[in-house]
C-alpha cells in the first residue's frame, strides 16, 4: 500500500480546511447555532416535549446530521472536482496509487473534517440546550458511518460533475430536502399514518432516527434496521465508486 500517497492526499485536503477555516468550520457552526436559537429557543420554548425530550434537545441529533451530510458531500465532491477543474488530476492519475488509496485519501479527509465539525456542533449545542449522550459509542458509530457514506456519495458527485452547477444541484435539490423531511426537526410519529409510511422511503430518516436513539434511547425505527439501512447506502456508494474506477468514468478519457 502506498502509505505516503494516502498521507499526501489526506494532509493536502485537510490543509485546505485550515486555509478556509471560516468557510469549512466557522460557517456551519454559526449556521447550526442559529438553528438552535430560532428552533430551539424561540420556537422550542412554545412547543411541548417530544417523546419525553425537550424540543431543543430533540433537534440536536438532527442538526448534527444535517451538517454532517451536507458538509461530507461538499468536502468530498469539492476535493475531487477541483483537481479535475484545475487540471491537476493528471498527477493523481499518473501516480503509482491504487483506486482504493485515492478514495481513502479523499474520502478519509472529507469524513475527518465532517466528524470534527459534527463534534464541534455537539459541543456548541451544550451552550443552548441541556442533554446527554446515552450511548456514546453508538453515537460515534453512526457519526463515522454517516460521514464516510456521504463523503463517498460526495466523491461520486465530484467525479460526475462537469461544472459547478452540477456540483451543487444534488446536495441542494435532493439531500437538503430529504434531510429536512427526514425528521431533523420533528418525530415521524407526529405525521399522519399515510405520511409515516411514505417517509420510510427516505433513507435519511433511518440515519437520523438511529443517531437520535444513541442520544436518548428513543426511536421510531428499530436500531438494527437503521444501522442496516446506513450500511446498505454505504455499500451502494462503494459499488458505484468501484465502477467509476473500473471504467474510468469521469476521470480517464
Amino acid at each position: 500500500m502506498n502509505i505516503h500517497a494516502i498521507r499526501a492526499i489526506y494532509l493536502f485536503e485537510l490543509a485546505r480546511t485550515w486555509r478556509t477555516i471560516m468557510q469549512s468550520i466557522a460557517s456551519p457552526v454559526i449556521s447550526t447555532s442559529l438553528y438552535f436559537v430560532v428552533f430551539g429557543s424561540a420556537i422550542g420554548s412554545r412547543m411541548t416535549e417530544i417523546d419525553g425530550i425537550s424540543y431543543g434537545a430533540f433537534i440536536v441529533p438532527g442538526l448534527i446530521m444535517l451538517a454532517l451530510m451536507t458538509e461530507s458531500i461538499f468536502n468530498a465532491s469539492f476535493g475531487i472536482y477541483m483537481p479535475k477543474f484545475s487540471g491537476t488530476i493528471y498527477e493523481i492519475l499518473s501516480a503509482p496509487i491504487s483506486y482504493v488509496e485515492i478514495v481513502i485519501g479523499y474520502v478519509g479527509a472529507a469524513a475527518t473534517k465532517s466528524i470534527i465539525l459534527g463534534l464541534l456542533i455537539l459541543a456548541t449545542a451544550q451552550f443552548f440546550v441541556s442533554f446527554e449522550v446515552e450511548h456514546p459509542l453508538w453515537m460515534l458509530t453512526f457519526l463515522t458511518l454517516t460521514a464516510i457514506t456521504f463523503s463517498l456519495f460526495g466523491f461520486i458527485i465530484g467525479v460526475w460533475a462537469d461544472g459547478f452547477e452540477k456540483l451543487q444541484v444534488i446536495p441542494m435539490m435532493i439531500i437538503t430536502p430529504l434531510t429536512f423531511l427526514g425528521g431533523s426537526f420533528y418525530s415521524i410519529s407526529m405525521l399522519p399514518p399515510l405520511w409515516q409510511k411514505i417517509t420510510l422511503l427516505n433513507p435519511v430518516v433511518y440515519l437520523i432516527d438511529g443517531f437520535r436513539w444513541s442520544f436518548y434511547s428513543t426511536s421510531n425505527i428499530n436500531l438494527i434496521v437503521s444501522l442496516g439501512m446506513t450500511l446498505t447506502f454505504l455499500a451502494i456508494c462503494i459499488a458505484i465508486v468501484w465502477w467509476i474506477f473500473r471504467t474510468g468514468y469521469g476521470l480517464k478519457n
Partner: peptide, 26 residues
C-alpha cells in the same frame, strides 16, 4: 510528467506542492 497545460494548485505554496508530488509517488 510535465504536462503541456500549466495545471497547478494555485493556492498552494511552491514547497508544499512539490512535497505533495513526492508523497503522491510513494
Amino acid at each position: 510528467l510535465v504536462p503541456q497545460e500549466l495545471s497547478t494548485d494555485s493556492f498552494e505554496t511552491v514547497l508544499s506542492a512539490v512535497k505533495f508530488s513526492r508523497g503522491l509517488f510513494g
